[in-house]
Computed example of a mutant assay.
Amino acid sequence: MRQIILIIGGNIGDRLSLITQAKQLLDEKIGKVSLISSLYETEAWGGVSKGNYLNQILILESELSAEEVLDKALQIEKILGRQRDIKWGNRTMDIDILYYGDQIIDTPNLKIPHPYLHLRRFVLEPLAEIVPDFIHPILKLTSTALLKNCEDDSIVKIIGEKP
């Protein structure tokens, strides 16, 4: 079994319902959800999309390969209405693989750890909440240290406690 850390979220549609549906589909198609962060409302990152996001980090236990996880995550995004028109544009659901155990994967289609996670406060705050001591396999820093070093000053706030 591998421990997979994902971030899910979106900024259009019924954001809370889409998060709930995504969690259920991830549990069914990828693996058992073993830990969930609080629910966060966050400013859009990247300067393209408009409107705040709801985000949450999940830890899943799965026997799927990283590539299989990516394929199923993309299928779930599509089921939930995701359209890939503009990079970092508005979306009903985005599912990003942050970590796949402590593996480093660098292929044309998949980069793990996620190459931007250390730059994004909306990722680091919930990550530090649920796995504060997890060590980034490339940067060799904990989630807490990555958050402390993050220069992103966007607004990230908890709006819902863990279920």
Rank of each mutant, 00 (worst) to 15 (best):
G51P: 13
G160Q: 15
V48Y: 09
T92D: 12
A128S: 15
R15W: 09
P137Q: 06
E61T: 13
I8E: 04
S154K: 13
I86W: 11
K148D: 12
I5E: 01
F122I: 12
K162Y: 05
K32E: 14
M1S: 10
G46P: 06
I104E: 05
Y99W: 12
Y40V: 09
I79K: 14
I36S: 15
I8C: 12
V131H: 03
I57H: 03
L25D: 07
S17G: 05
E63V: 01
Y40K: 13
H114L: 07
A128H: 04
E43I: 04
P115Y: 09
L124Q: 08
Q103H: 10
T42I: 09
P115E: 10
S143W: 00
P108N: 07
I36A: 08
K23N: 03
Y40C: 07
I112S: 02
S49E: 10
I86A: 11
Q3A: 01
L146G: 00
D14Y: 09
V123Q: 04
L80G: 10
N55M: 12
D71N: 14
P113Y: 05
D27R: 01
A66D: 02
I130P: 05
L147T: 08
M93A: 07
I59W: 00
G46K: 05
S49G: 11
W45T: 03
L98E: 03
L98H: 07
K78L: 11
D133P: 00
Y53M: 05
K111C: 02
G13E: 13
S143Q: 07
P108G: 03
S37Q: 08
R121C: 08
I30G: 02
I135M: 05
T142M: 00
E63T: 08
R84E: 12
L147W: 08
I79P: 07
S49C: 12
I5A: 07
I135E: 09
K111A: 01
Q56V: 08
G81W: 13
T42E: 04
S37D: 10
I158F: 01
M93F: 07
A44G: 11
L139S: 03
Q83E: 15
T144D: 03
R82L: 10
T42V: 03
G89K: 12
I86S: 14
I159H: 08
I95R: 11
D94L: 13
F134Q: 11
A44I: 07
E43K: 03
D85C: 11
A128V: 05
I76P: 06
N55C: 12
Q24P: 00
I76V: 13
L70D: 01
I105D: 04
T107F: 01
S34D: 03
G160E: 15
L110N: 09
G101V: 02
V156Y: 09
H118S: 14
P137W: 08
V69Y: 00
S62I: 01
A128G: 04
N52I: 00
T20P: 00
I7R: 01
L139V: 03
L141A: 07
D27Q: 11
S17D: 15
K111F: 00
P115S: 06
R120V: 03
